[in-house]
Design a protein around this nucleic acid. Structure first.
Lengths: 208, 208
DNA sequence: CCGTGTGAAGTCCTTCACAGCT
DNA sequence: AGCTGTGAAGGACTTCACACGG
């Protein structure tokens, strides 16, 4: 009813999605919405949305629906997006730089506090106001920062080593972009974003 | 037994993953592997792997396991990765450029045949040997190429419009990187890679 | 005897359908 | 009357456990 027993990834990801959609409604000036209208507009499931929300309590008004501002605010708090989370980016190749740039827009609840690369030509240079450290110094530098989450955007061949350096440096979570199956550390929450596998899935269904 | 009834995304994604792992074994010189050894080495499930493969036939030898080369070859064919698939990249910002660069390594079964952006300073310039077209010309240019899959890496605000232009131009599949819920076209297979939502999931579980 | 291939069991996730609140 | 919140039904995915082939 009130407290998260153990919430599934799928539900959590949808909650993020709902919040994003609610913000679109806010921008459009919509103040109230029912689960049915919401589902139709964004091509989602109304009953699933209600079930997802039910994990955390009651958010709506029977007979009326949901107040957009209220639901958005409550989801923001619930997901912890009213706090700033500090990130370390490991691997400042083109992907790492793109992610860093994207995350540096400061209306977001994420802030980059450390950057690493193995390339001697990049080390010491600045990206924004941030010095790039050598990857070998991860265990030394991370504890001096408040970084909780690491974004791992190194080549597949270097990913496992970097991952392990991060785990010993006290990082709490890792978002991996390297196309490799990491041997996971149980105390570090780890997710992979694997665009290659998604592309291969699409390719499978093509006619020719 | 033999023919794909209707294969799930989850199974398909794992098949891609198995193939990737098998290639690591090939590089290490391993010629034979049982599902148990494989699962232990890569932290996967042995019985699930066998079930996944069972969708497509029999691949192993009872009492022995799998021949690495053979299984890798059969998965490659099965997933259609022995053919080249042509891509269009829409949105040549830092993310689109990073993806383009990554995909241009030519041992991969993907080849970029068209690139688009709205930025007048980029249009007409070349990325590698490829001219960047204006996004408004998508419906005109795409049919002249053999592009089957589009990679959509534009800002969220432009994603829906670009998506629709792509669908009318005859694209068969879209891999969306924009953090927005697309209104999907039924004839176009569409997947989203949403790194923001994954990051928010990690943030949820952090202590402070 | 070992490991695959596979029905059956179990678990997790989604949809249905309706009681109850507004 | 309309819509939420929710038990119960249904479906999808994973794990179990063992018959069978090598």
């Amino acid at each position: 009813m009130t407290e998260p027993a153990e919430i599934s990834s799928l539900t959590l990801n949808r909650l993020s999605l709902y919040l994003r959609c609610l913000r679109q409604l806010q921008d459009a000036g919509t103040t109230h919405v029912s689960s049915g209208q919401f589902a139709q507009h964004f091509e989602l499931s109304a009953s699933l949305m209600r079930k997802d929300l039910a994990h955390f309590g009651e958010f709506g008004i029977r007979g009326t629906g949901y107040r957009v501002d209220d639901l958005a605010a409550r989801l923001t708090t619930l997901l912890g997006l009213d706090r700033i989370h500090n990130l370390a980016v490991v691997g400042m190749g083109s992907l790492g730089s793109a992610l860093a740039r994207y995350l540096s827009f400061n209306d977001k609840p994420f802030r980059i506090v450390a950057a690493f690369d193995v390339d001697g030509r990049k080390v010491g240079h600045k990206i924004g106001h941030l010095v790039i450290h050598h990857s070998r110094d991860i265990p030394e530098v991370i504890p001096q920062t408040e970084a909780q989450i690491a974004v791992l955007s190194v080549p597949a061949s270097a990913a496992q080593q970097c991952y392990e350096d991060l785990t010993v440096s006290g990082i709490e979570a890792v978002l991996n972009f390297a196309p490799t199956q990491l041997k996971q550390h149980p105390a570090v929450r780890t997710k992979s974003v694997d665009f290659q596998i998604n592309l291969e899935e699409l390719a499978y269904f093509l006619s020719s």
